[in-house]
Amino acid sequence: MTSTEPLIAALRPRYQAELADGTDRFFHPRRTDCPWCGATRLRVRLRTTDLLQHKPGRFVLEQCQECEHVFQNPRLNDTGLAFYYRDFYDGLGEQRLAGLFGTRTSVYRGRARSVLPFIAEPGRWLDVGTGHGHFCATARELFNGTEFDGLDLSEGVEVAEREGRLAHGYRGSFPELAAGLAGRYDVLSMFHYLEHSTDPARELAAARQALRPGGLLLIEVPDPRSRYARLLGRWWLPWLQPQHLHLAPLANLRARLGELGFTVVLEQHREPHDPIDLLAAGWLALDALAPRENAPWLTGNPPGRARRLLRTAVFLAGAPALLGAAVLDRLLARGAGRFGFANAYRLLARKEQ
């Protein structure tokens, strides 16, 4: 028995009760227009399931044929978001993901360095969607005179404040808290945050409110126009269903920032690219083939010894392919931005007067 088995057993009755009536109640009605531009010419881009937690449900991403915005449709409602987020970043998943985020210091340094040509020493920096505040802890090494605050919906932001990674941790909805933070920050960052939000336009307006005149907004998001997205289909990790609700092409985000009074001063593709696409796709495919791990939302008996051994055998058999994929990811990374394979883009925009 693993150390998580007692927790899984304790959580199972609640999950099974929530799923007794199916998953339809977790969704808003399907919308017939694009949430970004209002156009009505939509097409299905992707149909998939939860490939990471394997919680029940089917998810559809549609694309606007006018502006190319990609969005989940029908979209999860608040009940659905709470159900699918639970035990991913917290609970059962907290230790695993906290360890992962805590080891990405080189990525965090690269993000922080992108503002150096435009501001030498910010007075105050707010990281929205900060999680456990690991970016702020790393960025402080470059900007030791900067006060780093963080905002998040999860309790991780409170942990980050207690452990000293944040000067102040704000827990709640950014658009609802922005009025109390108005004009306070020199830099505001959103790293892989906007794609999780139910209304990206409100988040961008909140960012403008929290920044002082001349302040910088640093955004990094998955690029739905990446060639990997088409090549790998449902196995492309940045689709991340059901969590990613909106994936905006770069041109759309640049235009919206301009409408809000921002001037884009930096655009990056190679730098934010995370060379993991082929490895992640291989792992997701193997995970789909292998017997499921025990989880409180799955029906049937917990996996016995035979199923656990078979799962291990599947991954051992696939290990050479995963190793090859990891090597290929690294070899292709340098040309990812140049040839349209970058899986993310980064924008830095200045708030004008």
Results as ranks from 00 to 15, higher is better:
residue 329 D to F: 00
residue 245 L to C: 09
residue 53 Q to L: 02
residue 29 P to L: 02
residue 8 I to V: 12
residue 253 L to C: 06
residue 331 L to M: 05
residue 11 L to H: 01
residue 36 W to C: 14
residue 149 D to Q: 02
residue 39 A to I: 06
residue 42 L to W: 04
residue 295 A to R: 02
residue 222 P to S: 14
residue 150 G to F: 02
residue 235 W to Q: 01
residue 152 D to M: 04
residue 183 G to W: 09
residue 176 E to N: 09
residue 265 V to N: 13
residue 55 K to P: 03
residue 200 P to D: 09
residue 152 D to G: 08
residue 344 A to E: 07
residue 40 T to P: 08
residue 303 P to T: 09
residue 58 R to I: 10
residue 38 G to P: 04
residue 134 H to V: 07
residue 139 A to C: 10
residue 156 G to D: 08
residue 332 L to K: 02
residue 29 P to S: 08
residue 257 L to R: 13
residue 328 L to K: 01
residue 259 E to V: 07
residue 202 R to W: 06
residue 113 R to V: 10
residue 349 A to M: 08
residue 47 R to Q: 14
residue 117 P to W: 07
residue 92 L to E: 07
residue 331 L to F: 02
residue 169 G to F: 04
residue 88 F to I: 03
residue 258 G to L: 04
residue 192 H to P: 09
residue 134 H to M: 12
residue 48 T to H: 06
residue 199 D to S: 13
residue 337 G to A: 04
residue 10 A to E: 15
residue 233 G to C: 05
residue 337 G to H: 06
residue 190 M to D: 01
residue 98 A to M: 14
residue 134 H to N: 15
residue 292 R to Q: 11
residue 74 P to Q: 10
residue 213 P to G: 13
residue 193 Y to P: 06
residue 62 E to M: 15
residue 157 V to M: 10
residue 9 A to T: 11
residue 337 G to L: 01
residue 85 Y to Q: 09
residue 120 A to D: 15
residue 23 T to N: 03
residue 22 G to N: 07
residue 130 T to Q: 08
residue 222 P to W: 11
residue 226 S to W: 07
residue 259 E to Y: 02
residue 272 P to H: 09
residue 200 P to C: 07
residue 173 S to K: 10
residue 293 E to H: 10
residue 218 L to A: 12
residue 263 T to E: 15
residue 318 G to P: 02
residue 90 D to C: 08
residue 246 H to T: 10
residue 111 R to Q: 09
residue 17 A to L: 00
residue 218 L to I: 10
residue 69 H to N: 13
residue 254 R to F: 00
residue 157 V to K: 12
residue 114 S to G: 11
residue 91 G to Q: 01
residue 184 R to W: 01
residue 244 H to C: 15
residue 343 N to W: 06
residue 340 G to E: 10
residue 336 A to D: 06
residue 141 E to F: 06
residue 53 Q to F: 00
residue 291 P to Y: 06
residue 288 A to G: 08
residue 53 Q to K: 02
residue 149 D to W: 00
residue 34 C to G: 14
residue 32 T to N: 14
residue 247 L to Q: 13
residue 307 R to V: 02
residue 334 R to H: 03
residue 243 Q to V: 06
residue 96 R to N: 08
residue 33 D to R: 12
residue 132 H to C: 11
residue 16 Q to F: 02
residue 9 A to H: 08
residue 208 R to I: 05
residue 40 T to V: 12
residue 12 R to F: 00
residue 255 A to V: 03
residue 205 A to N: 10
residue 95 Q to K: 13
residue 190 M to N: 09
residue 181 L to C: 01
residue 138 T to F: 06
residue 258 G to H: 10
